[in-house]
Amino acid sequence: MNLNYYIKNTITSFLGLCILATIVNYVIFDPTQQQLEHIGTIIGVIVIFLGIMGIGYINAKSAPENKVKQHLFLHLALIIFLFSTDLIFGQSGFIVDILRNMSYFIALELGSYLYFKRNRQKLLLN
Score class of each variant (00 low, 15 high):
122 K>A: 15
52 I>E: 02
55 I>S: 06
90 G>N: 10
57 Y>A: 00
119 N>T: 02
44 G>T: 03
60 A>K: 07
40 G>H: 06
31 P>A: 04
30 D>R: 15
10 T>I: 15
6 Y>G: 05
125 L>K: 15
74 L>D: 06
27 V>I: 14
58 I>A: 06
99 L>R: 12
74 L>N: 11
76 L>P: 05
48 I>L: 10
5 Y>E: 03
72 L>T: 13
112 S>G: 15
41 T>E: 05
45 V>T: 04
80 I>R: 00
104 Y>A: 08
121 Q>I: 09
48 I>D: 05
61 K>M: 02
112 S>H: 10
16 G>R: 09
64 P>C: 09
93 G>F: 14
60 A>H: 05
92 S>T: 11
91 Q>L: 09
7 I>G: 10
116 F>P: 07
103 S>V: 06
92 S>R: 13
56 G>P: 10
109 E>M: 15
123 L>D: 03
101 N>R: 06
55 I>Q: 02
2 N>G: 00
124 L>N: 14
16 G>Q: 05
111 G>R: 00
102 M>Q: 05
59 N>P: 12
80 I>T: 09
57 Y>W: 11
78 L>M: 08
33 Q>Y: 11
77 A>S: 15
63 A>P: 07
81 F>G: 11
39 I>Y: 14
62 S>W: 14
104 Y>S: 06
74 L>M: 13
75 H>I: 01
60 A>F: 08
7 I>K: 08
50 L>P: 02
70 Q>Y: 12
33 Q>G: 05
58 I>W: 14
117 K>L: 11
49 F>T: 04
69 K>L: 12
38 H>Y: 13
120 R>C: 00
29 F>H: 07
67 K>E: 01
33 Q>C: 07
66 N>D: 09
119 N>I: 05
73 F>V: 02
88 I>A: 12
75 H>L: 01
52 I>M: 08
62 S>Y: 10
115 Y>V: 00
101 N>G: 08
39 I>R: 08
76 L>R: 03
10 T>Q: 13
85 T>R: 12
57 Y>T: 01
16 G>L: 00
93 G>M: 09
32 T>G: 07
25 N>A: 13
